[in-house]
Design a protein around this nucleic acid. Sequence first.
DNA 1: GTTAGCACTCGAGCAAACAGAGTGCTAACA
DNA 2: TGTTAGCACTCTGTTTGCTCGAGTGCTAAC
Lengths: 342, 342
Amino acid sequence: MALDERKLKILDAIVKEYISTADPVGSRTLSKNPNMNMSPATIRNEMADLEEMGYLYQPHTSAGRVPSEKAYRLYVDQLMKIMDLGNILQEEIKSAYSAYMNEITGIIEHTAQVLSSLTNYTSFGITPHTKYLNCKYMRLIPVDEHRVLMVVVTKEKIVRNYNIRLKGQAAESELERINNVLNICLKDITLNDFSDQIIDKMDSLTVNEINLLQEIIPLLKEALTEKDVVKVYSDGMDKIFNFPEFFDIEKAKKFIETLNHNNILANILENNMEDLNIQIGDENKIQAFKDCSLITATYKINGRPIGTFGVVGPTRMNYDYVVSVLNFLREELNAHITRLIT
Amino acid sequence: MALDERKLKILDAIVKEYISTADPVGSRTLSKNPNMNMSPATIRNEMADLEEMGYLYQPHTSAGRVPSEKAYRLYVDQLMKIMDLGNILQEEIKSAYSAYMNEITGIIEHTAQVLSSLTNYTSFGITPHTKYLNCKYMRLIPVDEHRVLMVVVTKEKIVRNYNIRLKGQAAESELERINNVLNICLKDITLNDFSDQIIDKMDSLTVNEINLLQEIIPLLKEALTEKDVVKVYSDGMDKIFNFPEFFDIEKAKKFIETLNHNNILANILENNMEDLNIQIGDENKIQAFKDCSLITATYKINGRPIGTFGVVGPTRMNYDYVVSVLNFLREELNAHITRLIT
DNA sequence: GTTAGCACTCGAGCAAACAGAGTGCTAACA
DNA sequence: TGTTAGCACTCTGTTTGCTCGAGTGCTAAC
């Protein structure tokens, strides 16, 4: 059996109706829709076909039909229409950005807030992973005989600091000289691969300083590539309580629990580097999101994706709108970050 | 009517029973308690008195009694007994601390985690407000012609950074000289009141540099005293779903919403600087916590409280245990911070 | 002052009854 | 041949009535 024009039309209408009401859609309700000039009986026949094909199911015999995840997938791939957000809204978003954002973590945090308040879903965003960042300035600060604090400022204006515990001792003057070397040779290279380049510039240092540096470098390398240096911001966790499918306490609990486990979230987001990614229900790898949809977008520096943000909500998600908002925010974000680092 | 020995004993038993079961306590149940050698009828008479005095109430005629907030207050003030946590548990906590904590924000975050996992309530903690911190090192880093990034490292090993937008221009060499002045005269003074002291040391700077500094100082002053420089960590939000009193979706939503509003939480915590503070139900200023209890403790530097942490849960909270844990953690935390900054 | 006995009250839980929404099937219609 | 009207059927949610059990307050006896 094939999906002809009429079946698609009916499926489209059912998905839209169900997304907005959360009630199983009956043939009678659907036939009242002005675009749908068919009798309930005809619609019923088509629905029976669609059910057989796996796009619909009935919660119980005498209920209407509910779209399956397969239906949402079809909807997202073929039927969904990107919307125009409208000038007023667009201007609002833009002005909120330009107001006060001087560094990238603030921008991401703000993005999560805007996203959640625009869409009414739970939102989140991660700051760029260290490996994507370019060093602008770094400095070793003596803390005590055996401890050094390393502050790194990236071109993207992210400030990171790492505590380092040394076996040897480091005098302030030695650190000062090392700082100079570091700053000369680290400018503009990616944090991830700085250790190799540094060796060449060492000739101006004393033996002790070189030893120090050789002790420090692997420690820094370790710190810089750590998983948890990615910050996760999320907003609107409470939004999930607006959806009847989460009125069940057990479900809500699982959801909140997962969201608070930052590294779980970071993990998904770090591995979703496509421009726009939609994961529907069972497509999600995380157990707690098996009946959610997750829509993510990436932001970029120089055309290269460095971080992710998005929303999570019931599979019955307003895909058209969310995708439109994400697309717009992505552009906004890219523009801002570019402005920030140049 | 006075609260004689026996009434207190009964009230104590009711509170304990209700805390552990969440079911209204009946006279028969209570009389089975081995310490309670009275007949149900006698207990009923006493209960009627206690109800009249406002310590108990009945959800409905044929239910048992439930402690009122007044009863919890009495319990906390007079009846509660601090517990000994036991050596194993204490050692566990200690070793978890000493393992890897090199700076204060990490310690606070870790404390929130430990607190929540020990008590099974939602926990939180705030990092010290800037005004309590002592400067160890600060540095202005040029970002572009009109922008400067200020990095401040405190004695407590907190790293803060602030973006500053200048009207004039700042050359790298000028900033370098200002950095030197800043570091000489700012060591060991509180971040909050550094602006005055700096003027005296200015004689080594050029006119342009002094102008720069005079532009920068009020901006820094503003940044340093900002409200939102306090970080709020919380953990175990999902724990609230274990309590039947929060099975109501509306309540759970309000709770999560409030917790996610960091500045609300920060506000309460900043204004709760007593060693140990217990707020029961309606004593809370925050609407969403009107039927919760909030127990907070402070941590100190040199005997002076600088930050707060605690738990929030149903008024039916295990006060004895939570207070014991908080007391212990407070001591642990103080010891750690002292070790950290000396 | 304490306790046993008893009538009374209220909620939780269960079953039966009912209304409403929706279906599938059949037969008639264009 | 595809579409539609009609109808019997199914299932859920809600309401109603009922019973059971837990707990109370009161009274009278110890």
